[in-house]
Every structure is written in C-alpha cells, then in structure tokens.
Design a protein around this nucleic acid. Structure first.
Lengths: 229, 229
DNA sequence: ATTTTCACCGACCGACCGGTCAAGCCCGCT
DNA sequence: AGCGGGCTTGACCGGTCGGTCGGTGAAAAT
C-alpha cells in the first residue's frame, strides 16, 4: 500500500498528504496503470479504497486532479532523480548510470510510471500534456547531452545523437510491457545488460573487441519464451 | 481511406469485405489508435463514417468485434509478413531483415498497429488476448531463433537470447511513440540504423573494430530535440 | 407484379459515467 | 452539556455509453 510518493529519497512531491490521500493515490495509480484512465471509474477507486465516492471529491476536485497527482505529480522529477544519480566520470559510464537510474525509478514508481506512459499518451488536448512533454524533453535532452559528451570524448562513434537517444530510451520505456517483478532480473540489472549490448554491440570479437570479460549472465537456452516483449 | 486489410501483398485477412466494412474498419482503426478503445464511442465511429450508429450493428455484432477486426484481424500475420521477408543468408543479416520488415509492417498498417499495441495491452476479455499473445510469442520466438542462429554461427557474442530479443523489439515497438511520417527517416531506415547500433555497438574503434565505413547518415547536431522518445 | 433481401435510419433503452449536495457522524474545545 | 467543524455518507443529477427495435426504400429474385 501507499507505495507512491514517499517523501523521503528526494522525491519532493505529494508533500504533506494525509494517509487517506496517499491511499487514494496509490490505489488510483494501480487502477490507472492496469485498466487505463477511461477504464477506471471514480467508483472503482472508491471501492478499492473502501470509501464512498463522495469522499474522493472531498480530497480532490475531480478525476483529472487525481490523475495529475498520480502521473504528473510522481513523474515530476524523473529528470532530477536521474541527474542526481549520474556521477562524474567517463561519459559512457554516465550513460550507463543514466540507464540504471531510470530503471530504478521505474522499479520504485512502477504504477505511476505505467499510468503516465500508457493512459494518456495521446489525451483530450490537455494543457497538462504540454507540461509533461516539457519534462520529457528536459529528460531526453539530458541524455542527448551525455551522448554528445561521449562522442566528443571519443568513447563512442559519431552516431546520430537523437536516434541513439531514442534507441536507449526505447529499451527502458518498453520494459514495463514485459517486466515481471517476480522473476528474471531487477530493472537495474536489465538496464545494465542493455547498456552492455548497445555500447559494446552484439557482434562477436572477430577482428573487433574480444568478448567482454563479463558475459552478462548469459543463460544458455534454446530460445524458448519466458516473458514477452 | 481503406488502408487496412488490402488483400494483396499476402495479408490474407479482411477477405470478402464490402467497401463500407472496410471504411468502418479504417475509421475505427484510426480512432482507436488516436483516442483509445474506451475513448472511442460507437457514435464517434458512425460520425466519422457519415453513417448512422445502427448501421454499425448491421455489419458488426458489437464494438468488440470491430476492435477485433482492426487489431487482431490486421495483426494476424505479422509473423508471416516478416518471415517471408527474411531471406537466406548470414544470420546477422536475417536479423537486420527481420527488423526492416517489421518496420515496413508498422509503416503500412500503422493505425492498426498502434490500436492493437496501445488500446488493449492488458484488459478485460480473455480468449482474444490469449490469441494475440500466442501470435506475439510466435513472432518473438522467430526472432530468438534468428539470434540463436547468429550465435551458433559465431557472428554475435554469446549474449542472453531472450534479453537480446527484447532489446531489438523494444526499439521497434516504441517507434510509434515518436515516429513522425512527415519528417525524419522512413521506419525501414530507422530499423536499419538501430540494427547498426545494436549489432556494431556504439563504442568507438579504439582497440576494437574501426568506425564502420558507413556512419549512418550522422546528422551532426548538438543534441537539440526534434521529436520525443 | 409480387415477394424477398438487405443496406440503412431515428427513436429509444437501461446502465453507468463524473460530479453535486444536504445532512449526519464524531471529535476536541469551551 | 453544548457546540463548531472537519470527515464521511447516500441519494441524486444530467449526460453519454453500448446496444436494440421497428421500420423504409430500393434493388434483386421469383
């Protein structure tokens, strides 16, 4: 319960919220993530919390505000969260830290993450959408800056920076569609594996770099499915 | 108009459908993709087609059936579509062809693709969801087979096969979120760039492979945004 | 010429939606 | 004991949802 919006750990949102409000945000986030915005009624949220529908309107002015607190409110500082976890060092390792930090954010605020990325990716032309895109741009431009750094430092090839950013973010943004918290690796470990693949490439060491010292826990199976992509 | 379900090109679905049915499926697909399943009412579809709502029920038994024809019906043979476009040759090139073919499918059946991947990624009904997952598994296992081939042939490192498949599919599945048909590259070209990045890696040639002969149309900009990921 | 077929429509239904409101409950304060 | 005021409620509202129904008109079949 109440897994969103902890006030510790530098996530500054949802400050001063009562337990009941936190409960509502938690249940609403889970419902928005699993059933979508339109598919989740105010009654659903009320029943999940064991309260009356009217009480929701005592704490929030309308459904949109609940969604905003769940999605925008908790996605608020993804950029800050990640930026503070990217230490100084070689640019390529900063990219790796960027990916691992984003995965950590995903693991910790999973429902809010899913709700914000799936429920409203289009949207009834809201002004809030613009705000989200602004944050998204800030986040993405941060990554592009890191990529450019790595290019300037000669650590990575002169690839197309926006396209490289999209590849990296794709691997992270799609994770919620197949990640199962009960098995396989943690999101941080997955991000690490993806970084290794993208940075070092899949190509074998013939006439190139030798197979890296740490093969990322290569489970030698014959391509049976475990979970979908 | 009527861009779904052409009977040529080996996409065998939607056979024997009247123009009106094709129009309904086309408009419904566009609406489902842009406004979501719950966000699209039968009235919306009827108005978009310039017909009465009753007529929808003359051609389809209910809303779910329309969605099924749009999403499941057109996603039907993604596996076959891609399989037929993967020629014999070096396994790594088969992976590349797999990616390009998937991108082509995305470009040609874009609305149905988006509708099927966004609207219902979870959600109520059971049997159709299972059917979709079965197809998805077949598609994904096909890719995993190609990856395993490339490993056995020594073309790529002994990476984790399922995880590698997820990385590749992530790059393709997330494309619809940022792809803009009016600018940048075609989906096929994007898939080609992604293949190059993932296969050869981002790392520069220091003590590894030299920077490949063809830097993929590296547009040397300073990491300003063009479109989001 | 009559019947059958079929694409098509307007009016309507019960259910549920987001949201409102007046009134109770329960608490500490005086 | 009396009381004010936050929390909480059930009843209710207008509107929209997916879906139904009886019927129309024109072409096709007989």
């Amino acid at each position: 319960m109440v897994e969103l919006s902890t006030t510790k750990d530098g996530i500054p949102n949802q400050a001063e919220a009562s337990d009941r409000v936190l409960q509502i945000l938690s249940e609403a986030g889970r419902l928005f993530a699993t059933k979508g915005y339109d598919g989740t009624s105010m009654r659903d949220i009320a029943v999940a919390c064991g309260i009356s529908k009217s009480l929701l309107y005592h704490h929030f002015s309308n459904k949109d505000e609940i969604y905003a607190r769940v999605a925008v409110g908790s996605t608020l500082e993804l950029y800050l969260f990640v930026r503070d976890r990217v230490p100084d060092g070689p640019p390529s390792q900063k990219i790796r830290a960027f990916m691992v930090a984003t995965a950590e954010y995903f693991r910790r605020y999973r429902w809010a993450w899913i709700a914000s990325t799936t429920a409203f990716w289009n949207d009834p032309d809201r002004h809030r959408q613009k705000e989200r895109l602004t944050r998204r741009d800030r986040f993405e431009n941060f990554l592009r800056g890191l990529i450019q750094e790595a290019i300037d430092a000669g650590e990575i090839r002169k690839v197309d920076v926006p396209m490289t950013g999209r590849l990296i973010l794709s691997s992270l943004n799609w994770m919620h569609r197949w990640y199962n918290p009960n098995k396989s690796a943690t999101p941080e470990q997955i991000a690490d594996i993806f970084f290794d693949m993208v940075f070092n490439g899949l190509r074998s060491g013939d006439a190139a770099a030798p197979p890296p010292a740490e093969p990322p826990k290569s489970s030698r199976r014959k391509a049976r499915q475990t979970s979908r992509s």
